[in-house]
Design a protein around this nucleic acid. Structure first.
Lengths: 210, 210
DNA sequence: CTACTTTTGTGACGCTTTTCACAAGCCCGC
DNA sequence: GCGGGCTTGTGAAAAGCGTCACAAAAGTAG
């Protein structure tokens, strides 16, 4: 019942959860797949199929109980617990992420910051002190870090990723524009801003050609 | 020959281009699909199929001429020209993007910044002055802005997007965690940082269950 | 000029994901 | 407690993508 979930399904689940937060107690505490599909750019059938991968928690003729579904989605996405995160790379992007309020409200807590720039080491962001790159493994182990946000230049990314994995990190959010080489048990999500812009200009160029 | 290109293909093209920049003049000026596949986490057949969507510009028995392929990819992705970009939302994320060097080297030039915060209006970032939100349409028209980077809170995103489209913008890079409602002729790329983290914690939770 | 090696371009195949359609289930009113 | 109106859950069909295998070029050596 719960094997081999497509990546796209996971993304949609994430959306459903956000939508649900929109109409918390609204409409008697239930939503139909139809309503959920409306916000979210998808179809009712898709919503139902997505959810059905994880069991059946709707009532026929009625829909889904908002609070119940929300709790279930949080559980599925692993948000029913906290996640300890280390930020590797204290540049502009690192800062933007560090101060991004949505992270903490979802249970992602930044517990360490590492940067290679000697000027930055020792500086404080909030109540955290920026550490040197050689302390990475120690921090990960001592603070029981599970997730790493990699926001360093491409040249440094592979080494840092390898060391983080070695130290026991379980997942990596990678902002460097390279494909990281890590063991398959460690999931990596890539965010590549240039690529997004290129996809845009491609779509525009292509569309204009019609 | 060039109709209905999958999104995933576009992403890979972007990768190929970056790889190509890696071995500029190397190995006699040619690459095989095999070599290209090696960096890039894909297969030789995939590379060839991706490229074949746009014509056939390889030499059998030899491979692809590096400089030629690079030029072709740049053209396909719409990078053989400049793009005028407006930044809407001058928060942390906006700043990080504004100062991201890779954008300019790819031909994306930020020509205007808009923010709703009266404290920020009038401030200068580099040689640009931050403008008020009511100036959005005028700036887009006067400066011939084609792309908008939307980095505002979710509540403001839809309105700004609508107005930008109305003023003639051709594509939107959206950082707000909502699905924008815009006419289909205007492509939108979403970057949703929370969603990426959720995909990670899902993968970890799910994997651990085995 | 021919035989041989290499690597592309592409139709056919197979898997994954989405869409469709409908029986099964649930609530409500009477 | 029975019938009618909704909405779910899910097999089956369709579409979308990736993989495979191989014929068609291009270059090279003899």
């Amino acid at each position: 019942m719960t094997r081999k979930i497509p990546e796209s399904t996971v993304r949609r689940l994430s959306h459903y959860l956000r939508s649900l937060e929109g109409f918390a107690g609204e409409s008697g505490g239930t939503v139909s797949s139809e309503e959920l599909a409306a916000r979210g750019q998808t179809t009712a059938a898709q919503v139902r199929k997505d959810l059905s991968h994880f069991g059946s928690f709707g009532k026929r003729g009625l829909g889904y109980r908002v609070d119940e579904l929300r709790a279930r989605l949080r559980q599925i996405l692993g948000l029913d617990r906290g996640w300890r995160v280390a930020l590797v790379g204290a540049g502009r992007i690192g800062l933007a992420l560090f101060e991004y309020p949505a992270f903490e409200t979802r249970g992602y807590e930044c517990v360490a910051i590492v940067d290679a720039d000697p000027q930055k080491i020792g500086q404080k962001w909030g109540r955290l002190t920026i550490r040197g790159p050689d302390e990475l493994e120690g921090l990960i182990r001592d603070l029981e870090v599970e997730l790493v946000i990699l926001a360093v230049p491409a040249e440094a990314a592979q080494e840092m990723a390898g060391r983080a994995v070695e130290a026991g990190v379980k997942g990596i959010l990678n902002f460097a524009p390279i494909r990281l080489n890590v063991p398959p048990r460690v999931p990596v999500e890539d965010v590549n801003l240039v690529m997004e812009l290129e996809a845009l200009s491609f779509a525009i160029t292509q569309g204009a050609r019609d």
